[in-house]
Design a binder for these strands. Structure first.
Length: 479
DNA sequence: TTAGGTTTCG
């Protein structure tokens, strides 16, 4: 049986291996030595597609990380598997699982590696007497002829002050700063996240993915994240994290006492009591060590010349020109200043016209620029957003004697400037929805008549449309 | 590859 799936019980994995096998350290591997009765154990951090060599031999390559020495400079190694074993392994293995190989050959590479991996690789095949043991999760019986029960792999989490250049690690952190996912200048979405932990070390991570959904779902400073398989590099004298193959994340609300429910796009993830405890401990630490009082504001609290984060509902949107896009939003409160209206062609405006008119004194126009345009175009009317670092600017048009407040989301991502879509399950969204449903639109009309400075009125006879508006509003708010 | 935190052309 070349590839065996083993059942492991907590830490006692060795007892299930043949007794003649001795463990070898990754750091001590040398070309030319006899490893017939030695084994290397590690976590699978990367695997490549199964291929065939020119002579028809199956070939499968994986990267193994030494889970006992996560902090050492060189802690991973390429494992090249040939023949039947390659085929078997390709069917069975998953990232994060523990992999043991015995009876391998060590081959030194001609040039030094620069990616933190060992300068040798392991060659493994049935013909040379190799044996492979995989600790797999229960249920993954795909290609196994043997019993295949086991516990989930045990992950090791590195505190932020123990990170070393060139390693791939798992870690927890509290979000101190973040840029919501935005389109990078390359091919992927990018999110920048700065974490801290009780060691008081900061780590800025550059996360990239072609799939928006696989980046962490961070909504506010103070959220807690768990990253798996993040690569650590030194940049400008500081450690930096960057996504590597197999990167996965969980995000938790950072509020003490809130349910510990991970936000993730992974179909499968491990999350046990121990991890729940870690999240709860980090919440308590963060409560007294992180300032989460962000620049959030309601529209009723905005002032000219201010940057703030707005949680709101999208009511309408419109193309303006190639480099800017209009979002019409509300949060149920009224801005104390007259606000600008961005002129757009009626045909370019998407959104329920009746509702837009009904809410016209509560809706504000936010003009987003450059890199935010593409994301803004994709937003669905009715969805809930958090727009980060909106700039309010006071400006008066030549033909008006009153100055109006303009809302801009400038280009770029400084200070986390960007747009995030919040799910309906988000506590802030639930609160906002309840508030929006309670807004008395009769009052809104009254406010209009009382507010002499507000000159926006396309047509004033609202009573004529009253019931129609009310019913439409009820329908929209239902969704 | 991309970004690498530290606000604004509009």
């Amino acid at each position: 049986m070349p590839v065996q799936l083993l059942k492991i019980i907590k830490e006692q994995s060795e007892t299930l291996l043949p007794s003649h096998l001795q463990k070898e350290n990754l750091q001590d591997l040398q070309e030319g030595c006899d490893y017939t009765n030695r084994y290397i154990q590690g976590i699978i951090t990367l695997s490549y597609p199964l291929t065939k060599l020119r002579d028809g031999t199956d070939f499968f390559k994986i990267v193994l990380q030494d889970s006992d020495n996560l902090c050492s400079q060189i802690n991973s190694i390429n494992v090249l598997i040939y023949g039947k074993m390659a085929e078997d392994c390709a069917k069975i293995i998953r990232h994060g699982e523990t992999f043991i190989v015995a009876g391998f050959k060590v081959v030194k590479l001609p040039t030094a590696r620069e990616d933190g991996r060992h300068d040798c690789h392991l060659e493994v095949s049935e013909e040379t007497g190799s044996a492979i043991y995989i600790y797999t999760k229960s249920g993954t019986t795909a290609a196994s002829e043997t019993a295949s029960l086991s516990v989930a792999p045990k992950y090791v989490y590195t505190p932020l002050h123990h990170l070393k250049d060139g390693t791939i690690v798992n870690l927890y952190g509290v979000v101190k700063f973040f840029k919501p996912p935005h389109i990078s200048k390359g091919t992927d979405y990018c999110s920048v996240v700065t974490l801290v932990d009780p060691s008081n070390v900061k780590l800025t991570c550059n996360l990239f993915s072609g799939n928006l959904d696989s980046l962490p779902k961070i909504y506010k400073v103070g959220d807690i994240v768990r990253f798996h398989r993040i690569k650590i590099r030194e940049y400008n004298g500081q450690m930096q994290g960057i996504t590597s193959g197999g990167f996965a994340s969980l995000t938790f609300d950072g509020t003490v006492g809130a349910p510990v429910v991970p936000r993730t796009s992974s179909r499968e993830y491990t999350f046990m009591d121990e991890e729940q405890k870690t999240v709860e401990e980090l919440r308590i630490w963060a409560a007294s060590n992180i300032s989460i009082s962000g620049p959030a504001a309601k529209l009723s609290g905005v002032q000219p010349m201010l940057f703030f984060d707005l949680t709101c509902q999208l009511i309408g949107k419109a193309k303006v020109d190639g480099s800017s896009f209009l979002l019409k939003v509300w949060d149920g409160t009224k801005c104390p200043y007259p606000t600008w209206k961005v002129p757009v062609e009626a045909k370019d405006l998407e959104g329920e016209k009746v509702l837009l008119h009904q809410l016209r004194n509560l809706v504000v126009d936010i003009l987003v620029y450059d890199n935010h345009v593409q994301l803004a175009e994709s937003l669905k009317v009715g969805s809930f957003l958090r727009i980060y670092s909106i700039h309010t600017k006071q400006a008066s048009a030549d033909n008006e004697d009153v100055s109006r407040i303009e809302f801009h989301l400038h280009g770029g991502t400084c200070y986390g400037r960007g747009i995030g879509v919040l799910p309906e399950s988000n506590p802030d969204v639930k609160e906002l929805k309840a508030f929006l449903e309670s807004v008395d639109l009769t009052d809104s009309q009254n406010m209009e008549s009382m507010c002499s400075m507000d000159v926006d009125s396309t047509f004033d006879n609202v009573t004529e449309y009253g019931w129609c508006f009310f019913i439409s509003l009820c329908i929209v708010l239902q969704y």
